[in-house]
C-alpha cells in the first residue's frame, strides 16, 4: 500500500495535491513524489533537493509546509517500504 501524506489544510487534497511513496519507485536515492494533475516533483529525502529539476515555487507552499512538518515520518516510511535502500 502506498504511503499518502495527509495534507492539511484539506483544501490542498481537494485541489488535487498528493504526496506519495509508492510501492514501486525508481531505484534511485530515497524520495517522495509530489503529484498535481499530470505533473510531479520528486524530492530527495537525503539531499532535500528537487531530483528532476523544476522550481520549489511550482509546489504549493502549504504542501511544502506539510512535507517539512512530517519530514521524519516520511523518512521512516521510506525506510519501512525500502529497507534495502534506507534514507
Amino acid at each position: 500500500m502506498p504511503y499518502n501524506l495527509p495534507l492539511v489544510p484539506r483544501r490542498l487534497a481537494s485541489q488535487g495535491w498528493k504526496v506519495k511513496i509508492r510501492d514501486r519507485e525508481r531505484l534511485e536515492p530515497p524520495h517522495i513524489t509530489v503529484i498535481f494533475g499530470p505533473h510531479s516533483w520528486r524530492i530527495g529525502l537525503r539531499e532535500h533537493d528537487l531530483m528532476d529539476g523544476g522550481r520549489w515555487s511550482e509546489i504549493d507552499e502549504g504542501v511544502l509546509a506539510c512535507i517539512r512538518a512530517q519530514w521524519e515520518v516520511l523518512c521512516a516510511q521510506w525506510n519501512l517500504m525500502y529497507p534495502d535502500n534506507p534514507v
Partner: peptide
C-alpha cells in the same frame, strides 16, 4: 489492488 507502481519507475 492496494499496490501502486510509479509510471516513471516502469519507464525507467
Amino acid at each position: 489492488g492496494s499496490y501502486e507502481a510509479a509510471a516513471d519507475a516502469i519507464l525507467y
